[in-house]
Design a protein around this nucleic acid. Structure first.
Length: 113
DNA sequence: ACTGTGACGGGGC
DNA sequence: CGCCCCGCCACAG
């Protein structure tokens, strides 16, 4: 479980973000968003933790880490609309077939921090 | 085995 | 917006 979740998060391209629920679903555990959050707390040092947000593009991390997350995301070009991220622009669309979807996918893993 | 706790999410009001 | 409730699941007591 932890491994799958970690793999999915590692695929999120720089400049894009995914939600806890989305990660859980793609990882094969639909409905288990909490486990994604749990995974992040223990694995945060090995994956792009800052690219995972709550539903609607909201930062759910309390305290300074939340501030840090916002800074990191802005730094990589993620578009904010108020306190939340504009998912229609910066939301990650896994293996979207065509259209105005995603281009990079392999660009992610390398640039973690 | 049982209960409480969340970096969660969706639905209803 | 905010609040409540319910489903979810690994983990700590």
């Amino acid at each position: 479980m932890l491994a799958e979740i970690r793999r999915v998060i590692a695929r999120i391209p720089k400049g894009k973000v995914a939600t806890y629920g989305q990660v859980a679903e793609v990882a094969g555990f639909p409905g288990s968003a909490r486990q994604v959050a749990w995974a992040l707390q223990t694995q945060s040092r090995a994956i792009p933790w800052h690219r995972v947000l709550g539903a609607g593009g909201a930062i759910r991390i309390p305290g300074d880490s939340g501030i840090e997350q916002r800074l990191r995301l802005k730094a990589e070009g993620v578009v904010f609309r108020g306190e939340k991220v504009d998912l229609t622009i910066s939301g990650w669309r896994p293996s979207s077939k065509k259209g105005w979807g995603e281009k990079a996918e392999a660009t992610a893993v390398a640039d973690i921090l």
